[in-house]
């Protein structure tokens, strides 16, 4: 069975754990701890190592879903889990401080995965702010990284249907990039699509 390895990244409180729980067909492996930093995200627990789930997208393909902690103090987990991943599903909560800058910061952080496979951005909690225009994010990305094409969608991280749309967008980008690389005989680095 072929498999994809996808990372869920983004700031604390963006909905990474919720998204993996919405998508996964197995019981999600979580590593949550009591949250001592309620000023950043007012929630009782926070992920401190990883979340892990799985979903089959057809009879021949499985997707492994890895969520990383949002706080930068856990960036060693970002490095460890990024080694195997082929794409990033970046969730950014639109009601946070400076969400556009945050999105760009995370894209830069995981840019190696953009080059290897792809990145898509899901804007969560967009209904809680007066305006969370996708164009703002797209324009800021275009200004910062003119040659980079990253889809931006608003999503509810708790919605299986919406997260599936985001996930399939990412996988389509990864497979397209892989097909182009195969056609011109260029590898896309480690962490590419695997067959088991």
């Amino acid at each position: 069975m072929a498999e994809h390895v996808i990372l869920f990244a983004g700031p604390m409180g963006a909905g990474k754990t919720s998204a993996i729980r919405a998508l996964s067909e197995i019981d999600v492996v979580s590593t949550e701890a009591a949250n001592s930093d309620r000023s950043v995200a007012d929630k009782p627990t926070t992920t401190v190592a990883l979340d892990y789930g799985e979903i089959g997208i057809n009879e021949a393909e499985k997707v492994r879903l890895y969520g990383v902690p949002g706080q930068r103090r856990f960036d060693f987990m970002w490095t460890i889990l990024a080694e195997r991943a082929e794409g990033v599903l970046l969730l950014v909560n639109a009601d946070a401080d400076n969400p556009v800058e945050t999105a760009i910061e995370y894209v830069k952080e995981f840019f190696a995965l953009y080059e290897r496979g792809g990145i898509v951005i899901g804007l969560t909690r967009a209904d809680l702010v007066p305006r969370a225009l996708i164009e703002e994010y797209a324009n800021a990305l275009a200004d910062e990284m003119p040659d980079v094409m990253i889809p931006v969608l608003t999503v509810d991280a708790r919605s299986q249907e919406e997260m599936m749309t985001l996930l399939m967008t990412l996988i389509a980008n990864i497979e397209l990039k892989q097909a182009v690389a195969d056609s011109i005989g260029v590898g896309v680095g480690s962490g590419g699509r695997r067959a088991r």
């Binding site: 492996v29 590593t31 701890a33 401190v48 190592a49 103090r73 856990f74 060693f76």
Partner: peptide
């Protein structure tokens, strides 16, 4: 700070293995 972060992740992973 880094030692504490790594210890936190390690503890949570070990707890998750025991739980699973």
């Amino acid at each position: 700070n880094r030692f504490a972060s790594m210890a936190s992740s390690t503890q949570a992973l070990a707890d998750a293995v025991a739980r699973e």
